[in-house]
Design a protein around this nucleic acid. Structure first.
Lengths: 271, 271
DNA sequence: CGCTTAGATTTATTATGATGAATTAGGCTC
DNA sequence: GAGCCTAATTCATCATAATAAATCTAAGCG
């Protein structure tokens, strides 16, 4: 598609090559080159795995030095848009942005923002029930089995703070797994992102629920009932269970007054 | 400025051959350096504006060449974590990630994801009513005035497709402005992000509502009533109006079956 | 005295070329 | 034909030098 010559997209981005003389915007050359490569990719509708020209060609194409090209590549690589390999058949190619990287980059933004737990739970209470209502009856057997296993992973209440923490993280992984199955990618992403923030809080700030046996037991029962409801396609039931679960979790967390992790999110190296 | 003396941070210059850790990842040197700088920043709890060592010091610190340091800087810059200036007193400093950049980076992720309009509206219907309920009674006069002006900007139905488009974008800007005022940064961000996606769709794909006079008039009335409700602190009323508005907007959009923009989100150069 | 501006200084930016490392493809041996 | 070895290709890193941009200093001018 989009085969013809004229680019149909409005170039509100100040093209530094075209408008070079009068309005030299103070974007560095590597950034300009990176932008040009982005446009180049979009215009050709390249997809994951499609290859880009090699370094030498780029140098010739853009009339810049090798260092500049390399810096441009690093920019694109940092954004997850390309991957680069050495050797014959190597070079740079289009790489789809991983969910992990997207969450890390977004996490960097909220590093400066001081999110509160109630901020997060306000959204969780809205989104997670909706998501499971969508999911009911739409999960395949292997996913259901996986969820069921996660729900049953800790049959007993925690006996140590460390175990408590593990259970909390495991519970968040349960939610992240649900999010992964969502048909609505944006909904799933936001939910998974919140789960990750909470997990990071748990790890870095030793945030975990006070060892309240009753609340914990109810949380576990919720997970199991939820999987049941999902399996039998009971959307409203799943929604209700999740809402109840969110309220319970919020109660547990609210005991902890806590601010968002002051740590740039590390990218988990999963190539 | 910076206490001189010994290099304070562990300069575990990982010689690519001698990686002490068993999980020796094949991360390139620029990436390693970038990671170390990130750690360095976090450990000192540096904030926006705090300065990093200059190039020469980094070269000495990390025992790498100039080019490697520059590539590392470009990585951090691409993520919005640092800004660099030339000249005396220049160099690199910590820069907080702008909302615009965060949205662009996240948009790159969804570039590959084919979001649908119904995906977006499913979430809007949940989040936007909640947000305005929070906002009621919490807006200062200038914000209210600003919103009111936006709501009144187009007193007449559009007479041309181009005007229609402008009105649609203006309406989205109204929602983005609301999101900006949200106390809940995450909630505000998600809503602003969706508004931006829809705006990009409008611009790039000529997506705008069919010129339905009645629906448009209702949308406009909604905005005005909403500002009124916000001003008098009527949370439930604001919520109801927004929900109704979202349903109306969804109806308009659903006429268009449309997929998300196939365009990397351009960063608007707003320093 | 105050303002302007020419120059010096600091710092990043770009360029060039040489050497090294990683990976694959193809050929060679058995 | 399987497995190893060599060679070719491509990026990765380093080193050096020249350039450009921003700021500071202070001389010069009115």
């Amino acid at each position: 598609m989009m085969k013809n010559t004229a680019p149909p997209i409005s170039p509100k981005v100040t093209d530094p090559k075209v408008t070079d003389a009068p309005r030299a915007l103070k974007r560095s050359r590597p950034v300009q080159v990176a932008d040009q490569i982005k446009r180049w990719v979009v215009e050709r509708d390249l997809r994951k795995g499609d290859k880009l020209p090699n370094e030498a060609e780029m140098i010739a194409q853009f009339k810049v030095s090798k260092g500049t090209v390399r810096e441009a590549m690093r920019i694109l690589e940092a954004q997850g848009l390309i991957v680069t390999k050495t050797g014959p058949g190597g070079g740079s190619s289009v790489g789809e942005v991983s969910k992990d990287r997207a969450m890390s980059l977004l996490g960097n933004y909220f590093y400066f923002k001081d999110l509160s737990l109630s901020d997060i739970y306000q959204i969780r209470k809205l989104l997670e029930p909706e998501m499971v209502a969508n999911l009911a009856g739409h999960l395949d057997d292997s996913t259901l089995a996986e969820l069921r296993e996660m729900a049953h992973q800790y049959p007993e209440p925690a006996r140590s703070p460390e175990e408590e923490k593990q259970q909390h993280i495991s519970s968040l992984a349960f939610h992240a797994r649900l999010a992964e199955a969502s048909d609505n990618d944006l909904l799933g992403f936001v939910i998974a992102f919140m789960a990750r923030i909470l997990a990071d809080l748990t790890v870095y700030r030793r945030l975990y629920a006070a060892p309240n046996k009753e609340l914990w037991e109810r949380g576990r029962r919720h997970q199991i009932e939820l999987v049941d409801a999902l399996e039998r396609g009971d959307g409203p039931g799943a929604r209700a269970i999740m809402l109840s679960h969110m309220k319970g979790a919020e109660t547990m967390m609210n005991a902890q007054e806590m601010r968002i992790t002051r740590e740039f999110m590390a990218e988990t190296p999963t190539p």
